[in-house]
């Protein structure tokens, strides 16, 4: 090899080598191993790992109603969560681009919950749902507060939704604010002079121009809610009776609580395929709807 080729190889190894190496041992190889393990009966205690073909998948599809319940829960949660966080994030962003006196302080407040991790947030809200709401119920007499919060399926579901929206709306707000401030002033003024009402400007001028931000925000919200784990673990632990168990939590419990690593790997593989499909479809759809300013 010539000196130049050696120099190129050296640079390649020096610059790209470290990141590639760590990525491969931590993500690449385990990911491929996970596919292999999904066809085995591995129980985590090393020793015997036997190839059992499609048995794990057959078991999941024929008899594992918990897994499908978890999927259904996750799909419902994603649908509700994505809509609410985006609507709230957008509305707050829209209002906070108006010349309000407290604008900056309000932006800080709405974003703040987001910097705290889901695990700690879940614990904080557990207290609020259980003790805080009970007190508010006594003080106000509103039946809303006297529901058995986190104690049954419905309140468990909406409890997680409330905390999720509280946590993530601020993040989406930041992205929407950036997009809204980038909408050219002269276009909006031109529309107003032409007699467009505020709602018409919003719908026909602003919305098409912020579609790229909508893409990003939908993408983020779907990804967060579909893979939700920390909040679920600390707020309800999937209970009562597994009624609020997300897919991510179901996989975790299957592997590390029931010690069925092979079955857990199979569930994780199905999860990956669905996440990948959703991502592809979503990027496709939203990219086609973007408009250039």
């Amino acid at each position: 090899m010539s000196r130049k080729a050696w120099s190129q190889l050296g640079q390649q190894l020096f610059f790209v080598g470290p990141a590639t190496f760590f990525f491969m041992i931590i993500v690449g190889i385990p990911f491929l191993m996970g596919m292999y393990y999904s066809f085995t009966d591995w129980n985590g205690v090393a020793g015997t790992v036997a190839w059992i073909g499609l048995d794990n998948f057959k078991a999941i599809f024929s008899s594992d109603s918990d897994y499908f319940a978890a999927f259904w829960f996750t799909v419902k949660f994603t649908a509700v969560g994505v809509v609410l966080t985006n609507v709230l994030g957008f509305v707050i962003a829209y209002v906070l681009t108006k010349p309000l006196k407290m604008r900056n302080a309000l932006r800080t407040i709405f974003f703040m919950p987001n910097v705290i991790g889901g695990l700690l947030l879940g614990f904080i809200w557990q207290f609020i749902f259980v003790k805080g709401f009970a007190t508010l119920g006594e003080l106000t007499g509103w039946s809303f507060f006297n529901l058995p919060w986190l104690g049954d399926e419905t309140t468990g579901f909406w409890g997680i939704v409330i905390v999720f929206v509280w946590q993530t709306a601020g993040y989406l707000m930041v992205i929407y604010i950036a997009a809204l401030t980038n909408v050219p002033k002269d276009i909006m003024e031109a529309a107003e002079i032409d007699g467009a009402s505020r709602m018409q400007v919003l719908r026909n001028v602003i919305m098409p121009l912020v579609m790229p931000a909508v893409t990003v925000c939908l993408f983020l919200a779907i990804s967060w809610s579909f893979k939700m784990f920390d909040l679920n673990l600390s707020l309800t632990k999937g209970g009562p009776f597994k009624s609020t168990e997300s897919v991510a939590l179901n996989i975790y419990l299957e592997a590390f609580q029931n010690n069925r690593y092979g079955l857990g790997a199979a569930k994780a593989f199905i999860f990956f395929v669905i996440v990948a499909l959703i991502t592809l479809i979503q990027v496709r759809i939203t990219k086609s709807k973007e408009v250039e300013a």
Partner: peptide
Amino acid sequence: VLFMIFVAAMVIPFQSVMIPLVKV
């Protein structure tokens, strides 16, 4: 190709890696 792999890997959920990761 390597860059494509990195980009594609962003889709992989943590749950699809964690079980074998403990072994590795």
